[in-house]
Amino acid sequence: MELHWEDIAGHEAQKMQLRTMLREHRLPHAVLLTGPDGVGKKKLGHVLAAALLCEAEDGPCGHCASCRAMASGTHPDYLEVLPERTGKSAAVIRIDAIRSMQVEASRYPVLSKQRVVLIDDADCMNEAAENSLLKTLEEPEGAVTFLLVTGARSSLLDTILSRCMPLSFGTVPEDAIVRALAQRGIAAEEAHELASLSDGSIGRAIALHEHEGLSRRDDALDFLAKLPQMDMTSVWKRSQEMGELDRETLSEWFLYLNMMLRDMLVLYEDGGSSLIYHKDVRARLLALLPSFPEPVIFSLLALVRETQHRLQSNVNLRLLMEGFHIRMRDVVQIRN
Rank of each mutant, 00 (worst) to 15 (best):
E2K: 08
E6A: 10
A9T: 03
G10E: 02
Q14M: 04
M21C: 05
L22C: 04
L22G: 03
T34V: 08
T34G: 11
T34Y: 00
G40N: 09
K41R: 15
L44V: 08
A65D: 12
C67K: 01
C67T: 02
A69H: 05
M70G: 06
S72C: 03
G73V: 06
P76S: 08
D77R: 01
T86F: 08
I98D: 11
M101P: 07
E104K: 15
Q114H: 05
N126Q: 12
E127G: 04
E127V: 14
E130A: 15
N131H: 11
L134C: 10
V144H: 06
V144S: 08
T145H: 14
F146A: 07
G151Q: 11
G151S: 14
A152Q: 14
R153A: 15
S154L: 08
L156M: 13
I160G: 10
R163P: 13
C164T: 13
F169E: 04
T171M: 09
V172D: 04
R179G: 00
L181Q: 04
L181D: 04
L181R: 02
I186Y: 01
A191Q: 11
A191R: 11
I202S: 00
L214S: 09
R216E: 12
D218R: 15
A220T: 07
A220Y: 13
L221R: 02
D222M: 11
F223W: 15
M230Y: 05
M232K: 01
M232N: 08
K237P: 00
K237A: 12
Q240Y: 06
E252D: 08
Y256E: 10
L257D: 07
N258K: 14
M259F: 07
M260G: 05
R262H: 14
L265I: 12
L267Y: 01
G271K: 06
G271E: 11
L275T: 03
I276Q: 03
K279M: 09
L286V: 10
L288V: 00
P293M: 03
P295W: 06
F298R: 12
L300K: 06
V304W: 08
R305L: 13
R305E: 14
L311H: 05
Q312Y: 02
V315P: 05
L317Q: 02
I326W: 07
M328A: 15
D330V: 11
V331P: 00
V331M: 02
Q333F: 11
N336L: 13
